[in-house]
Simulated scan of single mutants.
Amino acid sequence: PQNGYSDKFFGRLMFPIRDDRGDLVGFGGRVLGDGTPKYINSSDTPLYRKSRVLYGFNKARDRMMKERHAVLVEGYLDVIACHRAGVKEAVASLGTALAEDHAKLLKRFCDKVTILYDADKAGEKAAMRAVEILGDVGLQCRIALMPQGEDPDTLLRQKGAEAVQEAVQKAESPYDFEIRLLESRLGILSDEFWEQIPSVLAKAQTELDLERHVLRLAGQHPSIPNSQAAAAALRREVNKIRRATQKGQPNEVLAAAPKIKRSASSLQKAEQILLIIWLETDRRKEIADMLLETELWQTGTARLLAQALSEAETFEDVSEDLQAVLLEIDATIPQQERSAEVVQSAEARLRVELYTSQIRQQEELLMADSSNQAAAAQRKELIAKRNELKQRLTGRGR
């Protein structure tokens, strides 16, 4: 322009940005054709801060609350494509990396987040960073990268809504994702891979997760042809790393190990309801067996607390940091949410999640070997158990 002034968003496709209440607080703009930067946003104002607003949140909120699940994508068009494909709980951060305030906002409305980023190095790195931020506020995460060269928008246009939905449904745990990344980055036959994989395997939250990968990898060991011997060698390395971790030795393994956040906010509501029953001495038998089931508890703090309570006789036997968590839960859960019926429903919800995880593990075994009859039978049994619990929960309206 001759006067030297031009609109900040001139020549750009405009995206209105609304906060969680649906109020218009800013705009985003994508360049039409070539040009840089590709995206720009309104500057921060008293009403709008990029680190506190998620694009599409006002549209995704109701589905998010109903499903207790969110899908996190990279940009405006990805959000729009997901909603068009029926994935209506999709949101995106605005021209900035995921921030702690974003995670806290999600935590208010859901318990689980599926991260759906582009399948490139930047997307992989951002996904692992998002897992850390989301995990710090107690959100469970799964990662579902797009096929190479695709994003939700191109996938929707080329392969349809079912392809986008399938990408979300096939999300994997951060543990499985990190192992797969290491395999693709270093190659399973490289010495560097076999030097690094024990440290990743040691992060397994359950022995079932560990054994699944140990048995799969053992048959591909480049220097130990006997798969049983290779599996035993892997287990020894993993146990060595875990012992070092327990002794508090300062090394790279400890730096990579997952941190346990000792806060009531990091527990699921169902976990809080069950664990707080321990404070009522005459009701401890209701949860005694559950405290010993490590795999039942979905969060690290809950597993730690369950183990401590299973070994304690009095409140003073519990460490001070875990005492603080119990007291925080006690102040949060009202008495009417501690009835026997609510406790049974809480247990059922955790078992549904456990069975879902175990079903997914059996399906992975079947993908590797479709003739595995034991895995097929186990999967069928787990699905029946899960469906029975779901029907029971539906009947109770919980």
Rank of each mutant, 00 (worst) to 15 (best):
240 K>C: 00
156 L>G: 02
262 R>T: 10
328 E>Q: 15
312 A>C: 00
188 I>M: 09
372 N>H: 09
274 L>I: 12
3 N>M: 11
259 K>H: 09
117 Y>H: 11
229 A>E: 15
257 A>G: 01
105 L>E: 00
337 E>I: 09
7 D>I: 08
260 I>R: 07
46 P>T: 08
184 S>W: 10
139 L>D: 02
39 Y>F: 06
261 K>M: 13
33 G>N: 03
389 L>K: 09
256 A>L: 12
183 E>M: 14
108 R>M: 13
131 V>T: 01
164 V>E: 00
127 A>C: 08
118 D>L: 03
267 L>M: 14
309 L>V: 03
52 R>V: 06
219 G>W: 06
82 C>S: 07
292 L>A: 11
362 Q>D: 07
234 L>Y: 02
206 T>G: 01
26 G>A: 10
177 F>Q: 01
288 A>I: 09
102 H>A: 02
347 E>W: 13
295 E>I: 10
49 R>W: 07
356 T>P: 01
330 D>G: 09
165 Q>R: 15
58 N>K: 12
88 K>F: 06
9 F>V: 09
292 L>K: 15
334 P>S: 09
151 D>V: 06
231 A>V: 05
338 R>L: 12
98 L>M: 03
249 Q>V: 14
313 E>N: 12
393 L>A: 03
199 S>H: 11
82 C>D: 03
298 Q>V: 12
262 R>K: 15
182 L>E: 04
20 D>S: 14
82 C>N: 07
344 Q>D: 12
348 A>S: 14
87 V>L: 10
194 W>T: 00
183 E>K: 12
188 I>P: 01
97 A>P: 00
189 L>H: 15
91 V>H: 00
397 G>Q: 04
230 A>H: 00
139 L>Y: 07
52 R>K: 15
324 A>M: 10
101 D>M: 13
325 V>C: 04
218 A>K: 05
215 L>W: 09
225 P>G: 02
38 K>H: 08
1 P>Y: 11
307 Q>C: 04
127 A>K: 03
28 G>S: 07
330 D>P: 05
110 C>L: 11
323 Q>A: 11
361 Q>H: 12
193 F>T: 05
391 Q>M: 14
26 G>L: 01
12 R>Q: 07
357 S>G: 15
221 H>T: 07
143 I>Q: 01
198 P>Q: 02
310 S>T: 04
137 V>M: 07
364 E>Q: 15
39 Y>S: 04
338 R>F: 11
81 A>W: 04
238 V>W: 09
63 R>F: 09
33 G>Y: 03
228 Q>H: 12
193 F>L: 06
312 A>Y: 01
238 V>N: 03
155 L>R: 08
2 Q>F: 13
360 R>S: 13
